[in-house]
Each structure stands twice: as structure tokens, then as C-alpha cells.
């Protein structure tokens, strides 16, 4: 498989707004967006009963803003429910990418340095990357009926319900395969002589990989993670098809009720864009922070 086969193009969002005015607008937008999301989540799950507004209800009265603009009133009315649902989208994304990483490192190391395990790892990644994510979710949910495993767990909207665990398993498995590809090509881009030098001062193969190759490779893999994070944010919407009440699913049921497809899905698109752009900016920031002079200069551009 060619190396480029592993990459999904980044949602390149950095250059749209340029100049320092653009920069301040982006920061202001980000603060507003996340401030509001966090306020919603705090309000729903962390305030004692009686303080704040009931979940799903807006801070402002839609009727009060109606004279300013009908669209605004519409947004004020429905955004709270969508924000609550975005919590699950964020949970699905973050948990899956973290768990995915934990398994992807050994899978990719096996792929590059293993012999027998290399074949197993190759088969796994090809199989997962060669089939639709939706099919993988269906296998877990319908064929294996995994959600019965998680019955009886609390479901208060903050802690996820049974199907959410199934979705997390599905996204994690999927993410392991993609992250393993990113890390694999990053491992291959580390100069082979680095491991030789490590062996020459007496480090074992394992120590050399752990202390010399991986720290460099993981930096090379950051653009890959940026892609993966964006991918997971967007494709977590497919959890709707196994009944997870994440952002897209909630939007779909609201729209099925009020037939305001245009308005609801415009709001949903804006929320996803906000999450995706935040993720890209975050990863660009991480990449800058861990950058090392002279190491993979081109990878950070």
C-alpha cells in the first residue's frame, strides 16, 4: 500500500481568515463558541437542581429576540438541544482517538518491526480501512448485538448509555487502523540510522524504538492526528444509525418534528464546523509547541 494511501486530506482551515484582524475574530469566535458550549454542559450536569435553566432550554427567551430577527429566535430556540447533543459528539471523538492511539502504537510498531505480527497488523488495517465505518458499526450493533453487554449502566445524558459504548468500540477499532497507518508512515520516515546509532550505544531494539524512533515518529504523525480528529468529529455522526443521540441524530429528530430542515441543519453544520476548525487549530498549536529545531521542518508546514 502506498504511503499516501493512508492520508485523508486535512480540512485545511487555517488560511481562510488571514491578517491580525482575522486572527482576533477567530479567537473571539472560538471563545464565544466554547464558552457557550461549556456553559450549556455545566448548566445541564453540574449545577445543583434549581440553579440555571432546565437542560434543553435556552438561556435567553426566544420570544424576546424574535423582534430582532426570526432566524435568531429560531437559533436561540433550538441551539440548546443541539449543544447538549454536541457533548456526545465530543465524547465519542475524544475517547475514541485516545483509546485508538493506545492500541495504534503497538499495531504500527508490529507492522514496521514485527515479522509474524506484521502480517496480522497489515490484515487488520487493510480490512478496517477497506470497509465502510457504517458497516463496522452495524456488525457491532446488529450482528454481535454488543449493546446487551452494557445494559443497566446509568444514562443521565452526561454519562453515556449502552449504545454509546458500542459506538466508542466501533470508532476506536476504526481509529486504531487509521492511526496505525499514520504512525507507520511516520516510523518509516525516521532515518534508519537513528536506530543504528541507538543500538551502537548499547540500547536494545526495544529501547531504541521507545526512546529514539517513537518520539520522532510521533511528532511526524501530528498532521495525521489532525486529520483523524477531524475525521472522527465528522464521522461520529454515523453513530446516529445505531441510535446514539449525538448531534446529527438529535438534529434529525427535531427536523422530523418541525420540518425546519434548512434551519436545523444550517445550525448543525455551523456546530460541526466550529468543532472541526477548533480541532485543526488545536492540533496546529500542539505541533508548534512540540516542534524541535531541525526536526521534520517540512512536516510542520
Amino acid at each position: 500500500m502506498s504511503e499516501t494511501g493512508a492520508t485523508r486530506t486535512t480540512a485545511d482551515t487555517g488560511r481562510v481568515v488571514s491578517g491580525s484582524l482575522g486572527r482576533w475574530l477567530t479567537i473571539a469566535g472560538g471563545v464565544l463558541f466554547w464558552g457557550w458550549l461549556l456553559a450549556r454542559w455545566l448548566n445541564n450536569w453540574f449545577l445543583p437542581a434549581g440553579v440555571g435553566v432546565p437542560p434543553g432550554e435556552s438561556f435567553l427567551d426566544p420570544a424576546a429576540v424574535a423582534p430582532i430577527s426570526d432566524s435568531l429566535a429560531f437559533a436561540v430556540e433550538y441551539l440548546p438541544q443541539l449543544a447538549d447533543a454536541a457533548w456526545l459528539t465530543v465524547v465519542l471523538t475524544v475517547v475514541s482517538i485516545v483509546l485508538g492511539f493506545v492500541f495504534a502504537v503497538p499495531v504500527s510498531v508490529a507492522r514496521v518491526y514485527g515479522t509474524y505480527s506484521s502480517t496480522v497488523s497489515l490484515a487488520f488495517t487493510e480490512l478496517i480501512r477497506g470497509t465502510p465505518l457504517l458497516a463496522q458499526l452495524f456488525v457491532l450493533y446488529y450482528a454481535l448485538n454488543l449493546s446487551t453487554l452494557f445494559r443497566g449502566l446509568p444514562d443521565d445524558g452526561f454519562l453515556p448509555s449502552a449504545v454509546v459504548y458500542v459506538a466508542i468500540i466501533g470508532f476506536t477499532i476504526n481509529s486504531v487502523a487509521y492511526q496505525a497507518e499514520y504512525i507507520r508512515s511516520a516510523l518509516l520516515s525516521v532515518d534508519r540510522e537513528q536506530l543504528t546509532a541507538a543500538r551502537a550505544i548499547g540500547l536494545s531494539q526495544r529501547q531504541g524504538i521507545r526512546h529514539v524512533v517513537l518520539p520522532q515518529a510521533l511528532r511526524f504523525a501530528i498532521p495525521g492526528w489532525s486529520n483523524e480528529l477531524v475525521y472522527l468529529i465528522k464521522y461520529s455522526s454515523l453513530a446516529a444509525f445505531i441510535t446514539v443521540p449525538e448531534l446529527f441524530n438529535v438534529a434529525r429528530s427535531i427536523a422530523a418534528d418541525n420540518f425546519a430542515y434548512t434551519g436545523i441543519f444550517a445550525l448543525v453544520a455551523v456546530l460541526y464546523l466550529g468543532l472541526v476548525i477548533s480541532a485543526s487549530k488545536l492540533m496546529a498549536g500542539v505541533e508548534r509547541r512540540v516542534a524541535i529545531p531541525g526536526l521534520g521542518g517540512t512536516a510542520s508546514q
Binding site: 532515518d191 537513528q194 548499547g202 540500547l203 511528532r219 524541535i292
Partner: peptide, 26 residues
């Protein structure tokens, strides 16, 4: 010990850490 033609310093580590890695791990 071995010193290489293309030097092969560990690119992600400072000069000091290039030297301490072996001391600590080995």
C-alpha cells in the same frame, strides 16, 4: 563506542540528552 560519518545524533534530543540517554537507559 561508535562515531558515524553522518553523525546520527538523535534529532529530537538536545546535546545533553543525546549523551544522557545511554547513561540512563543502558
Amino acid at each position: 563506542g561508535m562515531v558515524f560519518q553522518d553523525i546520527n545524533l538523535f534529532t529530537h534530543l538536545t546535546a545533553l540528552k543525546n549523551v544522557t540517554l545511554g547513561l540512563r537507559e543502558v
